[in-house]
């Protein structure tokens, strides 16, 4: 779908055109599902979450202000919903406990070889498995950044964290991945 074509569809959807909603659904269902799948870790939960995102899309469409590209906005709505769901899974609602900003973040570059070295094609599956094993807060941050391609500010807005916390989460998430992979 061309950029302008998508804009037109989004515009029609904002006016309540059912066909336009169907088009958006067909176009983005898989990406939204993928995001939810990565964030929530189970196919069933992801299906529910994705369908709920589209269910609520009709109501939230009027808040879309077109300053963001639609796909990114939609993925940020979806990740917001997933963060909510992750929070609800916990006894206390604090999914993102404040991380100490000092410590290793202040250290000089570690001697550990970064993730990429261990990531020849045949190890991709291990990487996917390792992502699933990450604690929710790290996985959510990595998914928003590298799947949703959201900026730190956008992630901060969705999670209610400060920008430097987001940076730390992403950084620690990657470190944790390396640890799991034994890199």
């Amino acid at each position: 779908m061309e950029e302008s074509e998508l804009e037109a569809v989004v515009h029609r959807a904002r006016l309540g055109d059912a066909e336009a909603f169907t088009e958006l659904y067909q176009r983005f269902a898989r990406r939204v599902f993928g995001l939810c799948r990565h964030m929530l870790g189970s196919t069933e939960a992801a299906e529910d979450a994705a369908s709920e995102v589209f269910l609520r899309l009709q109501g939230s469409m009027e808040r879309y202000d077109a300053s963001l590209p639609f796909p990114r906005w939609l993925l940020s709505v979806a990740s917001h919903h997933c963060v909510d769901l992750l929070r609800r899974r916990r006894i206390e609602s604090r999914l993102f406990v404040p991380e100490a900003l000092e410590g290793d973040a202040q250290n000089a570059p570690t001697g550990r070889s970064p993730l990429s070295e261990a990531l020849a094609m045949e190890r991709r599956e291990q990487l996917t498995a390792a992502i699933e094993r990450l604690p929710d807060r790290y996985r959510a941050a990595l998914v928003m950044r590298y799947y949703g391609e959201m900026s730190y500010d956008e992630i901060a807005a969705q999670t209610g964290l400060k920008r430097n916390h987001v940076a730390t989460l992403i950084f620690r998430g990657k470190q944790e991945l390396r640890r799991i992979l034994g890199a």
Binding site: G34, H38, T128, I131, Y146
Partner: peptide, 13 residues
């Protein structure tokens, strides 16, 4: 590493 992560997510999509 960032590129690999993005690809890994895309592939599992």
């Amino acid at each position: 590493e960032a590129r690999v992560l993005m690809e890994a997510f895309r592939e599992s999509e």
